[in-house]
Design a protein around this nucleic acid. Structure first.
Lengths: 123, 123
DNA sequence: GACGATTTCGACAGCTTGTAGAAGTCGAGC
DNA sequence: GCTCGACTTCTACAAGCTGTCGAAATCGTC
């Protein structure tokens, strides 16, 4: 799984948060609105990033409409889960890692984890 | 947290697996023994990588002995947990991610997770 | 003080990411 | 059909990261 740079990440966040596919211009504006720096990127910059994200398989492009419209291929959660599995990856010590990891989550999260485990178990 | 290249990762794996600190020569030999390619790296290559890992805070160096000896700063598990938290990190939807994640682990892991959760809860 | 082992410095290639100008293409309106 | 502006593609470049070392400095020993 490919790692993302700062700008790529920002673009993905916008796409993930958007219900509709967005155009490069939409994204340029949204990016400018995001940072307090108010720095406007060139549209070509956004397009380059989108092309790279497309090549990485993270973004789909509608070529039928004239301003092409871009959307994330998978949800943010699925992407994050991919990252988690990659981090855990080939580690043979998965359980040891999980043990330490559990130690660091909040009580609320532990509770919901337990609930999730229970529902999975019954399935 | 810094991500690791292939060689850096191999070196860290060796250091994590070793009970004792290792020298650059040890590592060069171990690396050659690892890959079936039997390609020997120059010692300076290993030293460069070790210096970079030290700068990243992943490796400690004993300068007192003449062939310097290198050891991992933290355990592989701790490092992996760091990666996990980094992956989860920016996500405000931690629970959603955890839910999907649980769906992907093995039954055995789910069982041990439950056990871990129980022990944490009682603590 | 010289010599061999070891470390440090500097270097270079290849890849990734941010950034964008220049040039090509496409659709709408004349 | 032809033109014009919007949109996309191509190409490029700088910075940073990683793998890879050779050359030069250093250190301990004989």
């Amino acid at each position: 799984m490919a790692s993302l740079g700062d700008l790529e990440r920002s673009v993905m966040d916008l796409l993930w948060d958007s219900a509709e596919p967005l155009t490069a211009n939409d994204l340029r504006d949204d990016l400018a609105a995001l940072g307090t720096d108010a720095k406007e990127l060139a549209v070509t910059t956004v397009l380059t990033v989108l092309a790279r994200l497309e090549k990485k398989g993270l973004v789909e492009r509608e070529r039928s409409t004239r301003p092409h419209r871009y959307a994330a291929c998978s949800s943010r959660e699925d992407h994050t889960v991919g990252l988690l599995n990659e981090a855990l990856g080939s580690a043979q010590d998965r359980e040891a890692v999980l043990a330490r990891f559990i130690g660091g989550i909040t009580a609320d999260e532990a509770a919901s984890l337990r609930a999730i485990l229970d529902s999975v178990k019954s399935a």
